[in-house]
Design a protein around this nucleic acid. Structure first.
Length: 202
DNA sequence: CTAGGGTTAGAT
DNA sequence: ATCTAACCCTAG
């Protein structure tokens, strides 16, 4: 059995004991990982064999470990949810961060854009122009999780993807879903972008 | 608030 | 090992 399968297995069945839990968490986050103690706001502890599971998780969270391994739709095929997402749920979308100065990461959403969302974005930008991200959010994405910054970032990624395919033919379909979208909107996106660059020079 | 550099996760 | 998409950081 491969390592990934093992991790998956552990999450499906739940860690057998504290040591196993330590393995599961430590295995991914590394030996220096820190977990916030749920009770004490300031208490941060290193994951270690000397600690109990309760040091890291409150009882209600423990149930998450034995739940079924769920899948979600991404693109056209089902894919198992990365277990980092599962960990994110365990920690209320605040899960430990091993790099940098931050104690933990707070990543709210890690989903890929749907084709419909991209259509909205391209439509919106062509009507309102580039750089009106907050306005765009209000008009086209008012009920969406996407923030103005997300819109801006996505647009940048779209432009980059379009340009990448102009430059070289070697790295096509790095990601299939994006490839389709890019093929469909390439001309509109590049036209809008060209307009922006034109204005910028003046 | 936006622009743009930086970081991270997942796929190849 | 490298690349992309999504997300973060923050100056201005």
């Amino acid at each position: 059995m491969e390592d990934d399968d093992l991790d998956l297995q552990l999450l499906m069945s739940g860690p057998a004991n504290e040591a196993n839990m330590y393995e599961v968490l430590g295995g991914t986050f590394g030996s220096t990982s820190l977990l916030r103690n749920v009770d004490g706001e300031s208490a941060v502890q290193e994951i270690g064999p000397g600690n109990e599971v309760e040091d890291y998780l409150e009882p209600s969270m423990l149930g998450c470990f034995s739940g079924p391994w769920t899948c979600r739709q991404r693109g056209s095929r089902m894919r198992s949810r990365p277990w980092s997402v599962e960990i994110g749920r365990l920690f209320g979308s605040r899960y430990p961060c091993t790099s940098g100065t931050r104690e933990y990461r707070t990543r709210k959403n890690n989903d890929h854009w749907t084709e419909d969302e991209v259509i909205e974005l391209v439509d919106g930008v062509s009507k309102e122009g580039i750089g009106k991200w907050s306005k765009l959010k209000g008009i086209y994405f008012s009920t969406s999780i996407r923030t103005p910054v997300h819109l801006k970032d996505k647009w940048r990624n779209l432009v980059r993807a379009c340009k990448a395919k102009n430059d070289s033919k070697k790295k096509i379909n790095a990601h299939k879903a994006t490839g389709l979208i890019v093929r469909r909107f390439k001309h509109r996106i590049l036209a809008i972008e060209a307009k922006r660059l034109g204005k910028k020079k003046k």
